[in-house]
Design a protein around this nucleic acid. Sequence first.
DNA 1: TATTGTTATACTCTATAACTATA
DNA 2: TATAGTTATAGAGTATAACAATA
Lengths: 163, 163
Amino acid sequence: MAGSDKIAKLPGTPPGRISDETLRQFIGYYMKRAYNVIQSDLVNALKPYELRLVTYSALVIIHDNPGLRQSQLADVLAIERPNLVVIVDELEQRDLIVRDRSAVDRRAYALRVTKAGAALYDAATKAVQDHEDKFCAGMSPEQRATVLDAMNSIWNMKTEASS
Amino acid sequence: MAGSDKIAKLPGTPPGRISDETLRQFIGYYMKRAYNVIQSDLVNALKPYELRLVTYSALVIIHDNPGLRQSQLADVLAIERPNLVVIVDELEQRDLIVRDRSAVDRRAYALRVTKAGAALYDAATKAVQDHEDKFCAGMSPEQRATVLDAMNSIWNMKTEASS
DNA sequence: TATTGTTATACTCTATAACTATA
DNA sequence: TATAGTTATAGAGTATAACAATA
């Protein structure tokens, strides 16, 4: 399963094929490679809509949580508040979202998608669904569930792992 | 399984909990979250050895492939040649590797680990193994194999996915 | 005094062009 | 002419400090 690469280690000369047998012991290595493939395909899937991963994620979260604040959006996206400003700027300038002043706290904005934003959300999410289906096509429902469980259990270790 | 978060959508006020139900449709979302957890824990595991992910990976590849060229190392690590230079510089300055001139091509270097590099490879790889065991502890061998298969099949779609 | 959004800034990572020395 | 390693540099992505308005 791992370390099956044939390499010719002629002393003093570079091998023809580079072995990664040590790294292949680690599931994290396989996850990184797989995630890179998914991510670059996702970037391509979103390109027609002129959305990056962050801008799509932001649009989705605003769509699903109308009226949320920028600080809440930054928390969910796990990015710093200063860096979110330009992302929200971009979506606002494209008239995909609006920054309403919050009725209850005049410091904060209440973020909402516009009609155009909702339409782009629908179209882009369909494209992302197609992208997903492509990668899940070879997986049985049981396999998919097992992978999902594993990913979730790893995610749930996040607090204790930082000890 | 997904979208089970309770949120209170009071019109005009921010919800208490932010929903990510749309994103939870996608296995890529779970993979990203899980990989982030693994990566940040791995960074911590390597910190005592003053190794970053790239410097550790470089050390490992050089260890497993003595005599390889920098361009080969850059290919395996999937980083550009100019960016590899500083990484190799760092390992060389710490006397973990040496840059021998290739006997067959005097333009190229033949990279090898020193004794100190081999020792650090052993120690760091043990730490990475412990880090891995922590995340795989909850998985049965069957689950682990399923996850590995899934990651590999996704990885194998990398060429066709870029069409 | 604390928080929301903002600006400015710095630091890392990554990507490209151009140079040198070899081939 | 092409390639290996290098330099310089530019562009993303990410992180912190400090400010004005508001709580």
